[in-house]
Amino acid sequence: MYQALFFLFAASAVGFAINLLIQRHPIHSALSLIGVMGSLASLYLMLGAEFLAVVQVIVYAGAVMVLFVFVIMLLNADKEEPSDRSKMAKYLGLPLLFLLLAMITVVIYRQFPEDAMVQFGDFPGQTAAIGRLLFRDFLLPFEVISILILIAIIGAIVLAKKEP
């Protein structure tokens, strides 16, 4: 059961990601990315990270992607035209990408032999512990990151404001 669910969500994540790649219209790519994020939220849930699963849906699939879709519609983006500028990326890109994937896979198999299994309920969601950690041990990063968000808001307003 657990295995079937893992393969279902893994396949849907990879499928949506490939769909992001092959769609030519940005709005279709954005919807595929929402699918990837939904699948990843389910995988987080299966790894016992309930808090992150919910945050993933609310912040990523919700807020960030709404921003993307909003900008795509605001700019009235249409289908991208194929270009012949980057010959190097076209011919050398794909083999190098497969090389990268093969290298990562080899390293993972060397580092993590088959005995490390993931089982549902082995590491149950510890939202309370996360909150305690966040507001006690990681209080300074938490406050710093709130300032970062404030700067981002101000920066976005300044950048997107129409110049007189």
Partner: peptide, 9 residues
């Protein structure tokens, strides 16, 4: 049960 390496891959 799924090996951890599946998630990483």
């Amino acid at each position: 049960m799924v090996p951890l390496s599946y998630y990483l891959i």
